[in-house]
Design a binder for these strands. Structure first.
Length: 502
RNA sequence: UCCCCGAUAGCUCAAUCGGUAGAGCGAGCGGCUGUUAACCGCUAGGUCGCAGGUUCGACCCCUGCUCGGGGAGCCA
């Protein structure tokens, strides 16, 4: 029996005969030779089948084998730059385990809804595969970052009795007759644990019943939350900066091939180095209302318009070519495909062009005291190449547990981290209010029942210390790093508002 | 909850002025010894989302509904 090898290990078996176990990803028969693209979970490999080198009936069976059929192939490994992984297999023998017919996901384009309806199969496709591997690296990098720095993992409950983030977004659960809800954050529990271990983190699913139908929202997502005793805002910023840098570095070193396949912005990721940009909310507001921001928006608008004109010109040319006729059939088809592409790009540009003045106006009319809107965040992050910290938001715009800045009571000691290139928020965090009376007052102001928060208040009665932490959304981080526009492609089985596919 | 866009073959899309539909991919068959979402030829595949209205005539115009996409608010 030939040695079983995984595609990722082929480089160590040059010129040897090996056996791959996998699935047929694509095939290109070409008369007396066939090219089978086989995937095995670790990668993709081109397998060459030449007529005469294997039995004729096997050759024929392979020629008619459907996409995603399961099979084993044996043959000699050789280097081949034209093969996806750089190595190919010259097939000497093959065994078909199950011949699949009419696999629904073809090698061409599909709509997002169709793909999610077939998510159980779509996971096998190249893009979800790349993203899933990067997600794995991101999660591993996060755990290592905290474990290497003496953080203790504390698993906080998923059924919870208290709200952390606003009560409208809770999923309620009937817990043997008692109404509980699914966790929105482990933070409050984590603060309790931090007073025991000093530095802690939790990592788990988070549930928010936000009625947000956008490409940035899931109702079930994964979040890592560190919490540290004896830390100030600067310490938190450094921690967050270090975490994000180490995640990006790990992905750059472990998943470069996947980033390339996805067409991610590798040069942009390489610029993610400390120090990140640090702005206070007040400075951010000044930037948004400044002439520079308006200039920036105008430049963007003219850029969009230039792109639009270029696309329209190309469209006209293609249509003229088509009307003239005399094109080969494959050229016609290529043109038709390009036309569809241009139209969808034009649609998107049109939206951007329409939104630009609105966003510019929103930014210009920004008044101190408001929370930063999505478009404001986009402008701020587009104006900088590196991630941007925004700190010291107005108290009114933020959660009750955030510590009031003692030197300016109108603001709290919090921060958001905006990923670059217009991606938006991936981290939110704060120093926590550690004074009993102030915290009690804030709970009352929010209209919450202090009795529900009795144990949380207790933490301020017994050895209260300055402490704080933050939450980083895994899917948003993965979406930013991979350049994926839909957050729902960044988790295997996404849960959306009003829609759970599988 | 609100605003914008869409629904045509299994999938992705086209159909000029209102005159009962057309490509590619996929599937099936055939051709091709180095392909790269291969290519070339042939075949099959449709209650144009649902209900109503306008009209001699509706994929096309109008109303309602259902489903989907994008965005706002809110957030990681």
């Amino acid at each position: 029996m030939t040695k079983r090898v995984r595609i990722a290990d082929l480089q160590n078996h040059l010129s040897q005969e090996v056996c791959l176990n996998g699935w047929l990803y694509n095939s290109r028969p070409s008369g007396k030779v066939q090219f089978l693209i086989v995937r095995d979970g670790t990668g993709f490999c081109q397998c060459v089948v030449e007529k005469g080198k294997i039995p004729d009936d096997l050759y024929e069976a392979l020629e008619h084998l459907g996409q995603e059929s399961s099979l084993s192939v044996a043959g000699i490994v050789r280097a081949e730059p034209r093969s996806p992984g750089g190595y190919e297999l010259l097939v000497a023998d093959a065994q078909i385990h199950q011949a699949a017919k009419d696999y629904p996901i073809t090698p061409k384009e599909h709509g997002i809804d169709f793909l999610l309806q077939n998510r159980h199969l779509h996971l096998r496709s190249r893009r979800p595969w790349c993203i899933g591997r990067i997600r794995h690296t991101v999660i591993d990098a996060i755990r290592r970052f905290f474990n290497d720095r003496g953080f203790i993992l504390v698993d906080t409950p998923i059924f919870t009795t208290i709200a952390g983030e606003g009560e409208q977004t809770l999923f309620e659960v009937d817990y043997f007759g008692q109404p509980l809800h699914l966790t929105q954050t482990g933070q409050l529990y984590l603060e309790s644990a931090a007073m025991s271990f000093g530095r802690v983190y939790c990592f788990g699913p988070t549930f928010r019943a936000e009625k947000s139908k956008t490409r940035r929202h899931l109702t079930e997502f994964w979040m890592v939350e560190p919490e540290v005793a004896y830390i100030d805002l600067n310490g938190l910023l450094e921690l967050a900066e270090g975490l994000v840098v180490s995640i990006v570095q790990r992905v750059l070193s472990d998943n470069r091939a996947e980033l390339e396949m996805l067409g991610a912005d590798i040069a942009g990721l390489e610029k993610v180095q400390p120090p990140f940009v640090r702005l206070t909310y007040t400075q951010a507001a000044e930037i948004l209302t400044s002439p520079a921001a308006q200039e920036f928006m105008k430049r963007q608008l003219s850029e969009f318009q230039a792109q639009k004109e270029a696309l329209e010109k190309e469209l006209t040319q293609l249509q003229e070519q088509e009307n003239k006729g005399g094109l080969k059939k494959w050229q016609q088809e290529k043109n038709a495909r390009r036309i569809v592409e241009i139209r969808s790009d034009l649609d998107e540009l049109e939206t951007k062009i329409q939104n630009n003045p609105k966003h510019a106006e929103l930014a210009a009319s920004f008044r101190w005291g408001k929370d930063l809107g999505g478009s404001d965040e986009t402008i701020l992050s587009l104006m900088h190449e590196k991630p941007v910290f925004v700190t010291h938001y107005p108290k009114e715009a933020k959660a009750f547990y955030m510590k009031a800045d003692r030197s300016n009571e109108r603001v709290v000691e919090n921060f958001d981290l905006l990923a670059p290139a217009g991606f938006g928020e991936i981290i939110g965090g704060s120093v926590r209010e550690d004074d009993y009376d102030r915290l009690l007052k804030r709970i009352q102001e929010e209209g919450y029942n202090p009795q529900t928060y009795w144990w949380y208040l207790d933490l301020r009665k017994y050895g209260s210390v300055p402490h704080g932490g933050f939450g980083l959304g895994v899917e948003r981080t993965v979406a930013w790093i991979t350049g994926e526009r839909h957050i729902r492609q960044c988790i295997a089985f996404p849960r959306l508002m009003d829609k759970v596919y599988l």
